[in-house]
Design a protein around this nucleic acid. Structure first.
Length: 1172
RNA sequence: UGGGAUGUAGCUCAACGGUGAGAGCAAGUGCCUUAUACGCACGAGGUUGUUAGUUCGAGUCUAACCACCCCAACCA
């Protein structure tokens, strides 16, 4: 039980032996639970402006990692900050429950593969129903861990009523959105090229493809192939390109391919519009026939050796290694466009237009020939460019990865055979080999076939024989493999449902301009470019556990219905029953309009149930399209689906009461994920942005900058970290160390540092306050404070600093730059509050009776602590609340009675202090900065001269810069003298001290005046410094001629800096120079010794555990070196150490007293005794 | 390969186009200052990734390159 729980009666500030952040987290967490603080932070803001936050749903089938703590800290910070500002910030948690990772998890747990699901022939058969039940369970596997980490890290999010993407209500909203898209004609079924594993019989997601080890280097047979220009085109071509001289009608385009098996499906060739091509007259390397080929000029030497330039055509015989060639013409890609060529392997004629040269922006001259063979069925680029040019495709490979029966010549190709060697089993391969051997040897193509020839190899042989091959080689490249079957993947055309995004790029881009991206570049760059090139969104997934696409189609595809609600579905089913298409209504128990949980649990919209629903339209039976939708659509729907829009909460979206979000935050990896899907759905369904501010945070790497992974063992366990260091230090470290969008190199050393530096310092500062306030029986009275203008300069200074801090930190939070807020707070606490204000004011707290001055000191320190912890509370919610309780629990009753700001039971319920501009005094802050700087400079001189601070010195001299400077220093003179232990501060002028001065030019003002003469002026000033200084000091200006131009140096253009006072020990920094008198007179020496004695006695007091108020008797063994020091400083020594009686004696021994080294030369014995 | 980010002290990060590039940590030196040795003070540490350009003046602006990271792809 924390001490402050029962402090109210004792009316004292709690004190502690040491700081235990981990324990504080636990205590405060308990307090929040007991007091229901989170709900109160929302309920007490009822009726206030909402600040809308959307929680991106995590998936609970994986353990939370430290990066989640990072991401959630960022979310939490701004929600807490806005709450403090008085906004109502609701935070509904959510769970992403569908998708491949979950299915894979289940398959792993159950030890099954996709083939076993819904397949009664499989040994490990599991029904879709049971499988989906398993998924439903799997997805919540780590829910308790997530709830645990959420609580422990202090992330306030309402997990009692989360949105869950598998809920029927949620699905119903998603269906509504899909129907909405469909009504706007933004949904269509189309054909695209997707990664596909014939061995597994399934399409693969890019996530699956990016599993480690999927891309492997393979060696493929590649071919440079000749596509013959159609005879009827030659006349046109000659007319179009008069400079080209063709001596033969055998004209070919050269194209390179790594997948010869796609050549029978070739329907086009692509060239680069601006690439330059050459016509080369030569011979076919295999047959020796004369021919002309076309290829990119840049790649000429890859195919024709420069060494053969001089070879003579007339000497060439078929089979010669040296093949003569000459360039007979040039053309740009655009000039080659639309030339027709003959089909390379005419097994099947395509429908529509084909065999034309088209231009493609993806064509390069980095490899190949600069002419790309296009098989639209087997490449995404190919498909796109063919479609743009109205060219049809040929798909001569089936879903099992086998050629169509037509791809058969009986010699090289046999039809219905696997296009990749790897798809064969060993026995199949052996059988194929024997078949090949027989056929090829019989045809006389190969004398003795020794090994299986792949389809690629045989196609190349065939082309070679037909005179259509120019070159063949093996080529090593990385190629994707199916992670489950280890077999190569094909790119294969498949039917899918699409959202029309590409047509709406402009709208997406325009809406994006309304979004405030942090960092901006992610919005304009990564996201903006992505939007500009957005492709239609492929919604289809052929898995089991996901939201079924709510589209029913007749077998002949003439009739279609898109369902947008459970009510609609129920009605349609009733209709289907009436028409005899169905017998029973699975939604029979569902009551439209009743939004209770129970009502929505009377049915299930998932597979397999959705698939067993048949509908009716115009007499035709409609079947559900078998696809599930992309889970990204689930999460992108959350603004609406979490509210069960439009069935419930319609006005929240329609009237923009809870839409768009004011703030969302997730990792940068969501740029093309959640951020994108939110944006697309918002733009297409509602013509609106879905979020106004978005923070995309970076990755959490290990301390060496490597990605964290369980495999490498460098992943940081969030539970362990939070338990060891407490949530606050962990959160603070993550925030202060890097901007949210930069990657964080996570090093626990850094957390330890934050713990010591920031939290330790605050804890000590509070401890100091509490100790003396308790001694004095002081409690802050909010109704009766010393007016700020009556408080001493140091108080007004720290209050000015404090208000500047409030201003800065508020601004940083407003700009979503929490790292800057954290750094500002750190600096204030360490530099200003602890190491300047408290240190300089210590005596005010412990000297004398209660006075206005003392009261002001307490009140000032209390206020600083109070506001600092309030400012840091969004980042460090536990510690700040703990500190708040310490600072305010003794006065809570009073505060409630008087309705003052400290009446709240938690800091998270308070109202954020606004900047009190009138308390900010820049001149005062500047003066104090001066004092700090000068003190530091003097300490530096002392250090150099080995004069420790306890030794008093006589005098500081400071050359006057100007009268303003003098006034400023004068105002803080006492602070400086006390700080550096010197007796006098004297201002000196040049005449008095023969100060050595340096001249420094002000480039900013002079730059405008001199322009290109700058360097000359600088050189002149270097050589004539003293002259310019004296002129300017006398007349305020200096006239000079540079290359005919007159330049007038005025006071503002130069800085005259005193740098040395001969005979003194000086230090300078910037414009300021200080000089120290280092002579130590006897009386100064005595004073120094007295201070040493005080210090030793104080240490003894502390060691013997005396109270700070105890009076003592001190005995010092007589020592000649100390006699005058004690005699002359007796009252000082006594006052400082609360000594009532100081005796110099002869009879101390090391048993009755402590041996003490007063300085390097002097030692003595001292004993102290407590007096009553 | 394309898009984006980053590159400053050993490490983590600052620095409106303006004179000698600053903090913290680590390492170094000195100090137990009656809040704090889990602390304080003081020094040292740099060819600002490279090269060119714009400018009187570049860590900052432009271009190219190099390195590393993220995303997308890996395609003839």
């Amino acid at each position: 039980m924390p001490v402050w729980f029962n402090q109210n009666n004792m009316k004292k500030y709690p004190t502690y032996n040491h700081l235990n952040l981990s324990q504080i987290s636990k205590d405060i967490l308990k307090y929040w639970t007991e007091k229901d603080t989170f709900s109160k932070s929302i309920s007490t803001r009822e009726g206030k402006t909402p600040w809308v936050f959307y929680e991106g749903p995590p998936s609970a089938n994986g353990m939370p990692g430290i990066h989640h703590v990072m991401a959630r800290t960022i979310k939490d910070i701004f929600c807490r900050y806005k709450t403090l500002q008085g906004f109502q910030v609701k935070r509904k948690a959510g769970w992403d429950t569908h998708g491949l990772p979950i299915e894979l998890g289940v398959e792993k747990t159950l030890g099954i593969t996709k083939e076993d699901i819904g397949n009664p022939n499989s040994k490990k058969f599991i029904s879709v129903e049971d499988y989906n039940k398993a998924c439903r369970k799997e997805v919540m596997k780590y829910t308790d861990k997530w709830e645990d980490v959420t609580a422990k890290m202090g992330y306030w999010v309402d997990m009692s009523d989360p949105y869950i993407t598998y809920d029927n209500k949620y699905i119903e909203s998603v269906w509504w959105l899909l129907q909405n898209l469909s009504k706007k004609d933004l949904l269509y079924k189309g054909y695209t090229i997707q990664p596909y594993s014939p061995a597994a019989g399934t399409g693969l997601s890019s996530a699956e493809l990016n599993q480690p080890g999927c891309y492997r280097d393979v060696k493929d047979r590649t071919a440079t192939v000749q596509f013959k220009v159609s005879g009827e085109q030659l006349a046109d071509l000659k007319a179009k390109l008069p400079t080209v001289h063709l001596h033969t009608d055998d004209l070919y385009f050269l194209a390179w391919t790594t997948t010869p098996w796609t050549l029978p499906s070739n329907t086009a060739l692509a060239v680069g519009k601006d690439i330059e091509y050459v016509f080369v007259e030569s011979f076919n390397p295999f047959t020796g026939s004369p021919q002309t080929v076309i290829l990119a000029k840049d790649l000429l030497n890859k195919y024709f050796s420069e060494k053969h330039t001089d070879a003579k055509f007339e000497d060439y015989k078929a089979g010669d290694k040296i093949i003569p060639f000459k360039i007979t013409g040039h053309a740009k890609g655009s000039e080659l466009e639309s030339i027709r060529y003959e089909q390379l392997l005419p097994f099947v004629k395509p429908q529509g237009d084909a065999f034309r040269v088209i231009t493609g922006d993806f064509v390069t001259t980095t490899d190949g020939t600069g002419i790309v063979h296009i098989a639209p069925s087997f490449g995404a680029d190919d498909f796109r460019v063919a479609k743009q040019n109205g060219i049809d495709s040929l798909t001569l490979v089936d879903k099992r990865g086998r050629f169509a029966p037509e791809v058969k010549d009986g010699t090289f190709l046999y039809g219905e055979e696997y296009v990749k060697e790897a798809y064969h089993t060993d026995t199949e391969k052996q059988a194929e080999f024997e078949k090949q051997k027989q056929l090829l040897e019989a045809a006389g193509k190969i004398k003795e076939l020794k090994a299986y020839l792949s389809v690629d190899e045989r196609i190349v042989l065939k082309l070679q024989e037909e005179g259509k091959l120019f070159k063949k080689e093996t080529y090593e490249h990385s190629y994707p493999h199916c992670w489950r079957t280890d077999k190569p993947v094909l790119y294969y055309p498949m039917d899918s449902w699409f959202v029309k995004v590409a047509d709406n790029r402009r709208k997406l881009a325009e809406l994006n301009m309304q979004i405030n991206w942090k960092p901006e570049a992610t919005g304009t760059g990564r996201f903006g470019n992505w939007l500009d090139n957005a492709l239609d969104w492929n919604l289809s997934r052929s898995r089991f556990w996901g939201i079924p696409i709510p589209i029913w189609t007749s077998e002949d595809r003439s009739e279609q219905t898109v369902i947008g609600s459970a009510e609609e579905l129920k009605k349609e089913i009733d209709n289907a029953i009436a028409k005899g298409m169905m017998t029973e209504n699975p939604l029979g128990k569902f009551v439209p309009g009743d939004f209770s949980k129970e009502n929505y649990e009377t049915f299930d919209l998932h597979k397999p149930y959705a698939d067993s629903i048949y509908l009716e339209k115009n007499g035709k039976k409609l079947f559900r399209e078998p696809d599930l939708i992309d889970v990204w659509f689930d999460s992108g729907s959350m603004p609406y689906a979490q509210l069960h829009y439009p069935f419930e909460n319609k006005e929240l979206i329609d009237q923009k009461k809870y839409y768009p979000a004011d703030f969302i935050a997730e990792g940068v990896d969501q740029t093309r994920g959640w951020f994108y899907t939110l944006h697309v759905i918002g733009a297409l369904c509602f013509d609106s942005i879905a979020y106004k501010n978005v923070v995309s945070n970076g990755l959490v790497l290990d301390k060496n900058g490597n990605k964290m992974s369980k495999r490498l063992g460098n992943a940081v366990d969030p539970f362990e970290t939070i338990d060891k260091y407490g949530a606050d230090a962990t959160r603070w470290y993550m925030i202060a160390n890097a901007a949210p969008w930069d990657n964080l190199k996570f090093d626990v050393e850094g957390i330890a540092e934050v713990q010591r530096k920031l939290f330790g310092t605050l804890y000590n500062t509070y401890g100091f306050y509490a100790m003396y306030a308790n001694v004095d029986g002081f409690l802050v009275d909010e109704m009766n404070l010393v007016p700020v203008e009556e408080r001493p300069e140091l108080d007004r200074w720290i209050l000015s600093k404090l208000n500047s801090l409030v201003k800065d930190v508020t601004e940083q939070y407003e700009n979503f730059e929490p790292h800057k807020a954290a750094r500002d707070i750190e600096e204030f606490v360490d530099e200003h509050l602890s190491n300047w204000y408290v240190r300089l004011n210590r005596r005010r707290f412990w000297k004398g009776e209660m006075s206005a001055d003392k009261k002001a000191a307490y009140e000032t320190l209390h206020e600083c602590l109070m506001i600092v912890v309030q400012l840091m509370s969004p980042i460090a919610p536990f510690f700040s609340d703990w500190m708040y309780q310490n600072l305010t629990s003794p006065i809570r009753e009073e505060a409630i009675k008087n309705n003052t700001p400290l009446r709240f039971e938690s800091i998270h319920l308070t109202e954020l202090t606004k900047t009190r501009e009138h308390m900010i005094d820049p001149a005062l802050e500047q003066r104090m900065e001066l004092a700090q700087k000068i003190s530091s400079m003097i300490l530096s001189v002392r250090k150099k001269e080995k004069l420790n601070v306890r030794q008093p010195l006589q005098k500081i001299r400071i050359p006057i810069l100007d009268s303003e400077f003098r006034q400023h220093v004068e105002a803080v003179k006492d602070v400086i003298l006390a700080e550096v232990n010197v007796k006098e501060l004297e201002f000196v002028t040049e005449e008095e001290a023969h100060i050595v001065k340096n001249l420094k030019l002000n480039f900013k003002t002079l730059g405008k005046k001199c322009g290109k003469h700058m360097k000359t002026v600088q050189a002149y000033a270097n050589d004539h410094g003293p002259l310019i200084i004296s002129e300017i000091e006398k007349n305020g200006q200096f006239r000079m001629n540079v290359e005919g131009d007159e330049i007038l140096l005025e006071t503002e253009d130069v800085e005259i800096i005193p740098v040395d006072i001969p005979g003194w020990k000086v230090a300078n920094s910037g414009q300021i120079t200080v000089a120290l008198d280092v002579t130590i007179s006897n009386s100064l020496k005595d004073e120094g010794l007295a201070r040493e004695l005080v210090n030793r006695i104080q240490n003894m007091r502390k060691d013997s555990g005396l109270n700070v108020t105890d009076k003592i008797l001190v005995k010092i063994q007589q020592n000649d070196a100390l006699d005058t020091a004690i005699k002359n400083n007796l009252s000082y020594i006594c006052a400082e150490t609360l000594t009532d009686d100081l005796q110099v004696v002869q009879n101390l021994t090391s048993t009755t007293a402590s041996s003490v080294e007063v300085d390097d030369l002097v030692s003595t014995l001292i004993s102290i005794e407590k007096l009553n």
